[in-house]
Design a protein around this nucleic acid. Structure first.
Length: 306
DNA sequence: CTCGATCCCTGGACGC
DNA sequence: TGCGTCCAGGGATCGA
């Protein structure tokens, strides 16, 4: 599931692989995840790829001016969100297309930049400069660039649970379920704790550890849980360093207590019940609302050991 | 204001 | 083996 480190990995790979290439043609298959498919067909052919940047969980494919002078240059870019299962990578034409290949951009070196996304939770849009600018304004700070003061302000400004705040892309952009849970475990903060209740020292630790975890994950090319592959088709390695995510029923590597999973902010949240003490009232809230307790996973129902 | 519910979508795991 | 069911999850949206 592509979050900041995975998107960064793909963006860097594409930066190496396709910058300088010109898109000479475009084939669209399923288009229900594309904002305006006709805009892609009208705007992409003939444009040179100037840069591939990451913005939160988005990739921004910056495009040069169109070759035909009557089409005015609008500083537009192709925005790509990989959703859960999106993959974007260049392939030689003779490599068979994977199932669920929805967008094929023909490049001037003979390769094809292919977008594959089985679940189509991703998003693709061509946005002109002005629209792009407004679109990006909706998002919060980049967790790797934000200052501690700004991070603290954002975590404390809303009366929400820390897990919800970390996942909210208008608070911080780029964090998803994996890196939220991993950074909360590292800093011994329960995911249901309210952001405003965190002590300044806890916020500072979360800030530092979140950045460390994201940077390390980028070094290891992200986490490949089920099917994430980078722009070279390679999986990441960071999943081998997960301490809580996906480890329900296993032992906490710090205290040996059993890792648990609850639903916080509508998302599965993995945590250590001993290292990350629940906030006041949380356990009663769980008893009152059984939906907070996820259905036992099939593996744990059958007692699979680690 | 925050929260939960619902929808989107497919593949994989599981139950029978 | 095969068919039905559940579920994962990011984000948008709506109602409580």
């Amino acid at each position: 599931m592509p979050e900041l480190p995975e998107v960064e990995t793909v963006a860097r790979g594409l930066q190496r692989e396709v910058v300088g290439r010109t898109i000479v043609g475009l084939v669209l298959n399923k288009t229900d995840f594309i904002d305006d498919p006709a805009a892609l067909e009208a705007r992409l052919p003939g444009r040179r790829i100037l840069a591939v940047e990451r913005f939160g969980k988005f990739m921004l494919i910056r495009l040069g001016p169109p070759e035909s002078p009557q089409q005015d240059h609008d500083e537009g870019a192709l925005l790509v969100h990989l959703g859960m299962t999106g993959m974007l990578r260049p392939q030689p034409v003779n490599v068979p297309q994977l199932k669920h290949t929805h967008v094929v951009m023909h490049l001037d070196d003979g390769r094809e930049l292919r977008y594959v996304d089985p679940r189509r939770f991703g998003r693709m849009a061509y946005l002109s400069g002005e629209v792009l600018h407004d679109e990006l304004l909706r998002f919060g700070a980049d967790p790797l660039e934000v200052t501690l003061d700004e991070f603290t302000r954002r975590i404390r400004q809303r009366h929400a649970r820390i897990k919800a705040l970390l996942l909210d892309q208008t608070v911080l952009r780029g964090i998803g379920n994996i890196y939220a849970d991993e950074s909360l475990w590292k800093t011994k903060i329960h995911p249901a704790q309210l952001g405003v209740r965190l002590k300044p020292e806890q916020v500072a630790r979360l800030y530092r550890e979140l950045q460390k975890i994201l940077r390390r994950a980028i070094e290891l090319h992200g986490s490949s849980i089920s099917d994430f592959l980078d722009a070279e088709g390679e999986p990441g390695e960071y999943q081998q360093h997960h301490r809580v995510y996906g480890r329900e029923g296993k032992a906490c590597s710090r205290c040996k207590a059993t890792i648990r999973r609850v639903i916080v902010a509508g998302r599965s949240s993995y945590y250590c019940p001993r290292c990350q003490p629940a906030p006041r009232g949380w356990k009663n809230a769980c008893k009152a609302n059984p939906k907070r307790l996820p259905r036992r996973s099939r593996s744990s129902r059958h007692g699979v050991k680690d």
